[in-house]
Structures are given as C-alpha cells and as structure tokens.
C-alpha cells in the first residue's frame, strides 16, 4: 500500500510559545482506517488542522497525495474532507443549501443527483429543507459529515465524530465509515472510545503531549490486550514462590501478599487455570480472594506515556 499522507518532523508552536506538536512523524496508507487515540490536549485536533490547512505548521512538512500542503494547497485540500470536532454550522441555512455551498467551495460543479444520494445515505434526505437550528445534535453531526462528503474527498478526517452520540447512531456512523472505506476513501478518525477504534480501525495510533507514541496494526495491539492476569490474594505473605510451584510461572507481588499468574485468552488452547488451582490446593497455599484482570488499552497507553516520560528524564540527565 502506498502512503497518501506523510507527516515529517511536524512542529506546531502556538502564539505564546506553547508547542502542541513536538516533531510528529506519521504515514497514513491509502485506503486504510486509522484511529488516533489520545487524552485531551494531546494534539489530535492540531495535527488534523495542520494537515487540512487550518493552521500553519511552524516547521516540518506535510504531504498529501505527494503534494505539499502549504505550497500546493489547492491540490491537497481538494482531496480532503474534514468533519471538525465542534459542531460549527450556519444556524439559519437549510441542510440542502449548506451541502451545495460546500460543494461549490471545493470547486466542484453542482451535482444535485449526487448530493441527493449522499443525503439519503446519511438519512438526512427528509431533513434537507430544515434549518440547522431545527435539527437534533446527532443530525447536526451528520450534516457536518454530509458537508465533508459533498465534494467526493479521497481522504476523510473525522475529529471525534461520535462524541455525544447515542449507541445506535454510533453504530450507524461506523457503518457509514465502513461503506466509505469500501469505496476507497482513506479515513482518519480521532476518538476517546477504545471500542470505537477496535470496531472500525485497521491501525491505531496513540498520541500524547504532542508526540506520536505508537502506530500499530489493530490486530497486534489487540493481541497484547488479550493478556490476562489471575490474581491470588494470600492469607499469609510469602517471601518467595514455593519450590513446588516454581514451574507454573507464578510471580509474587504486593510484598508477598499476592500471587500473579499471566495467561493468554487469544490462543484458543487451555489457559492452565484449572491445573494451577488444584496444584495450589495441593501445595497448601491458603487464599483469601481470587480475581482476574485484563490490561486495557488505557494501561498500555499509560505505560507508554510513563516510559516516554522516563526516557526524557534520562536524556535530560
């Protein structure tokens, strides 16, 4: 697959000196769905804004379809549809007027048949003569998507498209996104919902404090998530794992008050839990509680962020 967007050493320094992007490198593949995850203020919107032309990069380069977003902005922007994070719409314009306006703004000749098809696909056709103020929040979000799609973009950016959207509508949006992917559109979306990234993305990127920490195939990331832990709380603390249980892979934690057993649920084979529990009984280990624990994307994420912080401290010394 070829890269349709390449971001290199992108730095964005806002007025006042704050660096929202600290040298971002990112390659987006043609036809993929990339989910960008990151906490509030990570720089997701700033990154999208720099690619789409809303803010000027302070340094570094962004190329879309092989063209530079600053020098060849007409070519790059024609390829991109943007659904912004905030619901910014003309309050007193009808849906129909707004999508026709967007299409013209992107230098595409009027094509009412196409717009009709698109609005029907987004279940907005019966609202085409309604003004923005007469629409519900979820409908407004779909109008934003309709505007972005009005000029047949090759690349679609969705900045938190499902924030404040109910479960049913969210699934509807995922279907829309999947359909667009089938049509060959490259999709980049930001989200706070891990299930969302899991449900639709091909790759997942994690961004924090202006840096991309990782971009990985969803499947391999999810494999890491299938790691589970069995936690066994002990009645009396141990100073080491008993000799008889040494081959089980158990480790001690919490000052010897807990035994931890790691296993994988993805493999399909047995997890070894039954055998382990009977051996614990044979070994006379007295337990007060047992629980299982699954590492979440958040934990992987926190892990990455902490490592990142530690690295920086090391280099600083």
């Amino acid at each position: 697959m070829t890269d349709i967007v390449t971001v290199e050493k992108l730095v964005k320094r806002y007025k006042g000196g704050f660096e929202a992007l600290k040298g971002v490198d990112l390659a987006i593949r043609e036809g993929e769905i990339l989910a960008l995850l990151g906490p509030n203020g990570a720089g997701k919107t700033t990154l999208i804004s720099a690619i789409c032309g809303i803010t000027m990069p302070s340094s570094g380069s962004v190329r879309v379809g092989g063209k530079d977003v600053v020098k060849e902005y007409r070519d790059t922007r024609s390829m991109i549809g943007l659904v912004p994070q905030e619901v910014n719409l003309e309050l007193f314009e009808t849906v129909w007027n707004q999508v026709r306006f967007s299409r013209g703004l992107f230098d595409k000749a009027p094509d009412d048949a196409f717009l009709e098809e698109m609005l029907k696909g987004l279940s907005l056709w019966d609202k085409k003569d309604s003004k923005t103020i007469e629409l519900s929040g979820g409908m407004k979000r779909r109008v934003l998507i309709a505007k972005a799609l009005s000029h047949n973009p090759r690349i679609l950016f969705l900045d938190e498209p499902t924030a404040g959207v109910d479960v049913e509508l969210r699934r509807g949006m995922w279907e829309t996104v999947a359909e667009l992917k089938r049509q060959g559109v490259t999709i980049i979306l930001t989200t706070h919902y891990i299930e969302e990234a899991e449900a639709i993305a091909d790759r997942i990127g994690i961004i924090s404090a202006g840096k991309i920490l990782l971009v990985e195939e969803k499947d391999s990331l999810m494999a890491r998530l299938s790691q589970k832990e069995l936690r066994i709380e002990l009645a009396e603390p141990l100073d080491r794992v008993p000799e008889a249980l040494a081959d089980t892979g158990l480790t001690l934690a919490e000052d010897g008050r807990r035994l931890v057993y790691s296993y994988d649920t993805a493999g399909g084979g047995g997890t070894g839990i039954t055998a382990l529990l009977s051996r614990l009984k044979e070994g006379g280990v007295r337990m007060t509680d047992i629980s299982t624990h699954q590492s979440s994307l958040e934990e992987i994420f926190v892990d990455l962020v902490e490592h990142d912080g530690a690295d920086r401290q090391e280099t600083a010394q």
Binding site: C52, G53, R77, I80, N88, L105, F106
Partner: peptide, 14 residues
C-alpha cells in the same frame, strides 16, 4: 464567530 470559518480555511480557495 460561529466557527464556520474552518470550511473556508480547509477549502481549495485562496
């Protein structure tokens, strides 16, 4: 004021 300027900034217009 309303934020709709994002569209002008991201469109292929000078």
């Amino acid at each position: 004021f309303s934020g709709t300027i994002y569209e002008f900034l991201s469109a292929p217009v000078s």
